[in-house]
Each structure stands twice: as structure tokens, then as C-alpha cells.
Simulated assay, not measured.
Amino acid sequence: MNEKNETPIIEFSDVTKRFGVLTVLDNFNFSVAKGEKVTLIGPSGSGKSTVLRILMTLEPFQEGRLTLDGISYHEPGGRGRFQASERHLRQIRNHVGMVFQSFNLFPHMTVLRNVIEAPVRVLGMQREEAEVRGIDLLQMVGLADKKDHYPAQLSGGQQQRVAIARALAMRPRVLLFDEPTSALDPQLVGEVLSVIRGLAHEHDLTMLLVTHEMRFAREMSDRVCFFDKGRICEQGAPDEIFGQPKNERTREFLSSVLG
């Protein structure tokens, strides 16, 4: 685990999430320290992506408590399926960025405008300032020369790198990656992983990553958590989880995916 700061920026306390009669997270407890890089691994349907979607306020939960840097996801007396006002949810979303499997870029906007649209509209940033920062972020992901292109003119790997720059443009405290390479052709995976690797090594962002790229997870994580049936069965330093897993389910899963 990252030793720089032990204060949890994310804290799930007895969170239960159900889809109808299906319980996806069952009294789930999980915390992440500021600046920590945590990878969630496990079989499909085990609850990994649900954790990210709850953090991004894309899915409500039924029981328990969740805080982000001390901000509760529920307001006292809150109403609606999230038990919170839209204003309160926006406050949370301003601190969280998410990179999805699909790139979700606006096809009618240039690369640069895709990156700066949310900072201008949501954060109220001046367009000139947003453009300078947007070009810096595109430079960071190796795409400054594509700023005037449209998404259809880019490869899948390039589009995902733009999506990463767009997420960073909101200056999030926490950055979430939900299988960011799963929609890419194999030859394009490396360029996206390289950008994520650079972010992990060079920036003090808190990062949660759901991925099936096990070797990458071992390389870039402070901590790896193995999920199964809505619970964390085992967690620890990457060398412990990949080198000497204690849980039988962890061993079975890693044997199946690593061959």
C-alpha cells in the first residue's frame, strides 16, 4: 500500500448493492488512501465495475455508507434513488474522473473541444485557460498534434488516450479506469497502458483500475484486490497476490487467466 498518506479518500462501510433480487455487493467494506493505486481483479460479474459505477454516482446503493474525501454520498433527508440532490451529486462528480471501456467521445467535436468542454461548462473555466490546459494534457498523452482532428479520424487507442485527457481535464482527486483496454485491438493496448503507467508513476492521483491485464496490474499497483461474488476475497501487495496467493479462489482465477 502507498505509505505517503494513510487518510482514506474513499471509504465504503457495509455497502450493499442489489439489482432486483441479485445482490452484487454484500456488506462491502473497502478503503483507499490518498495517492494509492489499487487494481481490482476477478471474474466477470464479481462486482468490480459496480464499485467504480457507484463511486461515479452512476449507480445508487441500498444500504451502508460511502464517503469521498469526507463527503457522504447520501444527504441527510435526501430523496430519490440516490438519496441526494442533483447538486450534491455534481459536487461528488467534480472530484471523480472515469475512463470507460467505450471512449464516449462527442463525434461532432474536435479532440481539443472534447477535452475542454466539461471544464468550461461545468467548472466555469475560461475557454482560453481551458485550451492551454487541454493542449498540455493532449501533449501528456502524446496527441497534441491531433487536437483539430475528429474522433472518427483516430484509432481506438488514440480515442482512449483522448478520453483519459478529458477525464484529467476536470482535475479529479480520484481517477477510475473500467477495463480501459477491453474494446481495443491487441496491437493498440500497449499505447493506452503506457499512458496509464505514466500517470501512476508521475502523478499523485488516487487511481482505481479494473482490468484483465494481469501483468500490467502487477507492475503499476500499490495494492491488488481479488473480487468474487461481491466481496474482496484477498488483497495485498502485487507480489503477494500474484506470487503467493493464499486464497484458493484467487489461485484458481490467476491460474486460468495467466495460463
Rank of each mutant, 00 (worst) to 15 (best):
M1V: 06
K4H: 14
T7I: 15
P8D: 13
I9Y: 05
I10W: 08
E11P: 05
S13H: 14
D14K: 04
D14W: 02
T16D: 03
V21D: 15
D26W: 03
N27Q: 12
G35R: 11
K37W: 05
K37A: 11
L40R: 07
I41E: 06
K48F: 05
K48D: 13
T50G: 03
V51N: 13
L52W: 01
L52E: 06
L52H: 08
T57A: 11
L58V: 03
G64T: 00
G64M: 03
L66C: 10
L66A: 02
D69H: 06
G70E: 02
I71K: 13
I71G: 09
E75I: 12
G77R: 09
G78H: 08
G78S: 10
R79H: 14
R81H: 10
F82T: 12
S85N: 02
R87H: 12
I92D: 04
I92A: 12
R93C: 11
R93T: 13
R93N: 11
H95C: 09
V96F: 06
M98E: 10
M98Y: 06
F100R: 01
Q101N: 06
F103T: 00
N104H: 04
L105Y: 00
P107W: 06
H108R: 10
R113S: 13
V115W: 02
P119T: 15
V120R: 04
R121V: 14
G124E: 11
G124L: 05
M125S: 07
M125G: 09
Q126R: 15
E129S: 07
E131I: 07
R133K: 15
L138G: 09
Q139L: 10
G142N: 09
A144P: 00
D145N: 07
K146E: 14
K147N: 04
K147Q: 08
D148I: 02
D148K: 05
L154M: 05
G156V: 13
G157R: 11
Q158V: 07
Q160H: 04
V162D: 07
A163T: 00
M170H: 05
M170K: 13
P172E: 10
P172T: 01
R173V: 05
V174M: 00
A183D: 01
L188M: 11
G190N: 14
S194T: 14
V195N: 00
V195Y: 00
G198N: 01
L199V: 10
L199S: 02
H201K: 12
E202H: 08
L208F: 00
H212C: 03
E213S: 07
M214R: 05
F216E: 03
R218W: 02
R218S: 05
D222F: 04
D222N: 13
V224F: 12
F226C: 13
F227P: 10
R231F: 04
I232D: 07
D239Q: 13
E240A: 14
E240P: 01
E240K: 15
I241L: 15
F242Y: 06
G243L: 08
R249D: 10
E252S: 11
F253W: 01
F253C: 15
L254E: 10
S256R: 12
S256E: 09
V257E: 07
